[in-house]
Design a binder for these strands. Structure first.
Lengths: 145, 145
DNA sequence: AAAAAAAAGGATAAAAAGGTATTAATATAT
DNA sequence: ATATATTAATACCTTTTTATCCTTTTTTTT
């Protein structure tokens, strides 16, 4: 596995996808999103349900319904998505899995890991959800496997 | 979960523990290791079995047997342990889980992730297994949860 | 031989990932 | 207003992966 869980990977890709479509004011259906990012549809539904409850995406049911994002959420940092799905273990947990490990009572690698965790956190905080719309527009990047 | 799998966390802690004991020339039994690092005994046995096959720890069976490490392996970087257990996904995989993603065909976060992966890799390569013996001796750090 | 210890393999449990079916909400046509 | 179609939400089930436990075998010392 990579740094994040598969759930989290899908969540990030989906959020980028929705942000891209949302920029032009529309809504996107779950099938279209799943197809666009190459994820299992119903598993993604569950993830988006959760993100919706947490206010990271918005949704409306019924005909012409779908997922979208408002101005404010588009500007949110990616870290909120990661934290909503995977929790903050990546930002705070001990690299060796030790519970007691802290600044006062550090494990052998505490300080080294702290640097890395901080960098991951900073990176995700400095990356807004809408940041990649342009690239996606120009076709420079894709979200499909 | 943190950055690494639980298996990998146990592996790293176990290797540190063995290194520490090995410094004074002895061998350590599996029960003692499991107890010393707070891991399930039989699960750890399987992990060490694997590390043994890969030459990261040495072992002898029978009375007075146990696990130990020779000079050369003590100097190995921690990255070898991680790679043996979790594979190199953390060092090479795409942060968004995209298969096509590469230097030529990067995903939206490719370059940001590359920095982080490189830092993790560098950190683990610059950390030798024996590096913490002193701290463990002095009781500054522990490997028990 | 007897005992001690790791190696090996399989069984079980828990968690993550993925799939199916039903329900609830809403827009639109009747 | 009512019915219908569309779409997300919810609940439940299956599969896969990860983690844990248990039993047997092999090796080695005494």
């Amino acid at each position: 596995m990579g740094i994040f869980s598969k759930t989290c990977e899908y969540a990030m890709r989906a959020v980028f996808f929705i942000a891209h479509r949302t920029a032009s004011g529309g809504r996107v259906g779950i099938k279209e999103i799943a197809n666009g990012i190459g994820s299992p549809e119903h598993f993604l539904a569950k993830i988006l349900q959760d993100l919706s409850r947490r206010g990271i995406v918005q949704s409306v049911k019924g005909p012409n319904g779908g997922f979208y994002m408002d101005r404010a959420t588009l500007k949110k940092p990616l870290s909120e998505v990661v934290e909503a799905v995977d929790g903050n273990g990546i930002f705070t947990g001990c690299g060796l899995g030790l519970e007691y490990c802290s600044e006062i009572n550090p494990c052998p690698l505490h300080h080294e890991f702290k640097d890395i965790r901080n960098q991951i956190h900073a990176m995700l905080q400095n990356t807004s959800i809408e940041e990649f719309n342009e690239d996606l527009n120009l076709g420079i990047t894709t979200l499909k496997k």
